[in-house]
Design a protein around this nucleic acid. Sequence first.
DNA 1: CTGAAAGCGCTTACAG
DNA 2: CTGAAAGCGCTTACAG
Lengths: 364, 364
Amino acid sequence: MVAEQAEVSRETASHILGGKRADRYKDSTRKRVEDIARALNYRPHRGAQMMKSGRSNIIAIIHFGAGIEAARKINQTLAQQLQKIGYDYLAIDMNWHDGNLDRLIETLIGSRVEGVLISHIQTIFKDEHIEKFYHVGIPVVLVNGETRRHATLVSSDATDAIEAITDHLFTCGHRRVLQIIDRFSHLAEAHRPLNWNQRVTGFQRSCERHGSWTIVGEEEFFAKCLPWPTASPEKLEGIILEQNAEDYAIVDKPVYRLCLRLFSQPSLPDAIICRNDMYAMEAIAAALECGVAIPHDVAITGYDNDRMGTFPAFGFTTAEQDIEGICAKAIHLLLQLLKAPQTPMPETLFIPSRVIIRNAGSRP
Amino acid sequence: MVAEQAEVSRETASHILGGKRADRYKDSTRKRVEDIARALNYRPHRGAQMMKSGRSNIIAIIHFGAGIEAARKINQTLAQQLQKIGYDYLAIDMNWHDGNLDRLIETLIGSRVEGVLISHIQTIFKDEHIEKFYHVGIPVVLVNGETRRHATLVSSDATDAIEAITDHLFTCGHRRVLQIIDRFSHLAEAHRPLNWNQRVTGFQRSCERHGSWTIVGEEEFFAKCLPWPTASPEKLEGIILEQNAEDYAIVDKPVYRLCLRLFSQPSLPDAIICRNDMYAMEAIAAALECGVAIPHDVAITGYDNDRMGTFPAFGFTTAEQDIEGICAKAIHLLLQLLKAPQTPMPETLFIPSRVIIRNAGSRP
DNA sequence: CTGAAAGCGCTTACAG
DNA sequence: CTGAAAGCGCTTACAG
C-alpha cells in the first residue's frame, strides 16, 4: 500500500480510506492520509478487496437481442435498479460472444459474481449452463424468455394483451384477422415457447367469443385459404398463420417476405397481428411497397411499443410491457435467493402487459 | 485451495490447473488433480489471479447510444476483436448509469482494466475524466465521436460520403437540396463537433461545384427562404438548415417535427439530407403523414445503413461506415499504447465511409 | 517430477 | 487514537 509508505501508519490507511472506522482517527491524521492518497493517486485494488471480503458485490446481467427496443429497456432498467440498491453489475451481451459459452460461464464464476440475471434467454443457453451456476451456489433469475431448470422466470404475459387486441380488431368491424407467428404447433405443448402459447391462447379466446379460428402453415394458407370464401360476409374468423420457425432464425425479414407474398393476392385479410413492433414495421414496409393502404385496406398491430410505432404514419396498435414491474420483481427474487438460498421459488411469475390502441389498428 | 486438500500436493495443483507447467507432471498425478478439481467444482478466483499476476487482461468498452444500429455494431465488433486477440472486456453502457461518472471511473481503475475504448463519446464525458485514466497510466482510445485530451480518436469521416451523396442528388436533377443539421455555426470552428464540420464541408464542396450554398437557422429559413424564388429554375442550390442543437437533446423526434412543418409549405425542396438513417426515417414518417411522395416529391438520404433503410418502401441513399476497419485501427493503437506507453499517437485518425445509392435518393 | 517459501494488496478482529 | 498479526486464494521462481 502506498499511502503509508509516504507517511506514517500502515493499515490505518485502510481504515481511513475504507471509510468504516474513519471516525476513530484524529482529524489531522485522517487529513494527512487522505491528502497523500490523493496525491499518489491511490485506488484500492478490487481483486484484493474481493479476496478479503469474500464478496464481489457484482450481479451479472446476461442479455440477448439488443436489437429490440423493449429488450434494451429491460436491460437498462435491471442495471439501474441494481445500482440503486448498491450492487455493481457486469453486463454481458451474448451477441458479442463468438460461441464459447462455457468459457464465459467460467469467467463469471471466476469473477465471483453473486447472482445472475438472464434476460430473453435463447436456446443456446441450456439447462446445463444454468446448472453450472447452480452447482457453485450462484442463484439465477430469468427475465422474459423461457424457463430453465434451477431458475425462476419472471416474464411479461402476452395472453391478455393479445386477447384484448384481437377483441378490439373484431369490435372495429374487421372480419378476418390474421395472426402471423413462427411454427411450433407441431411440438408437444410443453416444448412450445411460452410466448407462443400466450399469443395463441389469447388469440383463440377472443376468436371463440366472436366466431371461429383455425391454424395453418404458410403453404397451406396460400393453397387452401385464398381466395377467401365469400359465402358469409358477417362471419368473424381468426387465422393463425405459422411460418417455418427456421425462417425467423435464418431468413432476414421473414414477415416482410410473407407480406409481399400476401399483398400480391387478390383478397386480403382485414387485419394482421404481428409478433412485435419490429415485425409490424416489416408488414408496413411491404404494404407501402405493394400499394396496400394502412389501415384502410389492412390494419396492422404489433407488440412492445417501439419508438417507430409512435409516428402517426405508422401508428399501429401495440402493447407495452410493465418493464419496471418485471425488473423489480426479478431483482426482488434474486435478492431473496441471495439472502436465503433455500427459499422456495415459483417456477414462473407472469406480469400482464398494457394495450395501446392506435389508429392504424382501426378502420378510419 | 481445494484440490490439494482432497488429494496430495499443494501448488502442484496450481501448475496443473493453471496449464503452464502441466507437462512436467506425471500423467497419473495430473489426472488425479484434474478429477478432484472437477469433482469439487474448482474455479480459480479471478481477483486472486489478478493480484498475483498484476494484470487483469481486461479492456473496458465504454459506450453510449445503444439506440443507433451502427453504434451497436461498432461496440460488438470491438468486443469480438478484443476476444480474438485474447483480451477480456468489460462493457459499460453509459445509458445505464444514473450520473455518477466519477464512481464509474473509480470502479474501472479499481478493477485494474488495462485499457479503455470509448465509443461515441458524449459531452458529459470530459477531458478531466479521461485525465483520471491518464494519471494512473491506463491508455484511452476513442472510437467515433469527439476528441479529448490524452486520447487518440479513430473515427469515420463523413466528408467524402456527404459530398458524394450531394453530388449524386444534383446529378439526378435535384435543384434545391436541403441538409438538416443541428446548430453549431455560432461556435468557433474548434468548438464545433467534428462530425458537424465533416457534413457541412462535404456538402459545401459539392454545392460549390454545382452552384451555391447558404446556411440558415430554422426560423430564418421559414421566414425568408420560402416560398422559393422561381427566377432561375436551372440554378442549383444547397441549403443547410440548422435546428437548435437543444432540440436534439430535449425534443423527441426533432427532424420529424421540422418536416411536418416543412411539408405543410406550398413549395418543397427536392431533396433532404438527414444526419443519419434514424432521422431519415423521421422525415419519411412525416412525409407519409403529409401525403408527400418519396422520392417523387422529395428525396431523402440518411447515413449509417440501418436495417430500416433496406426495405424498398423506404430505401433511401445512405453511407456505411467501415466498422471493421475503424475497430481494428482503434484496437491496434490501444495495443501499441499497452506495449509502449510512450508511443507518440496521432490526435485523430479518420477512415472514410462508403456511399450506398438507393432509389429513394433519385427521381424515379 | 514435486513441494516449501514468499508475496500480490487488501481488511478485519485484536491488542495496545 | 493507532499498529502488529493473520489470512483471503492464488502464482512464480527456486530448491530439491
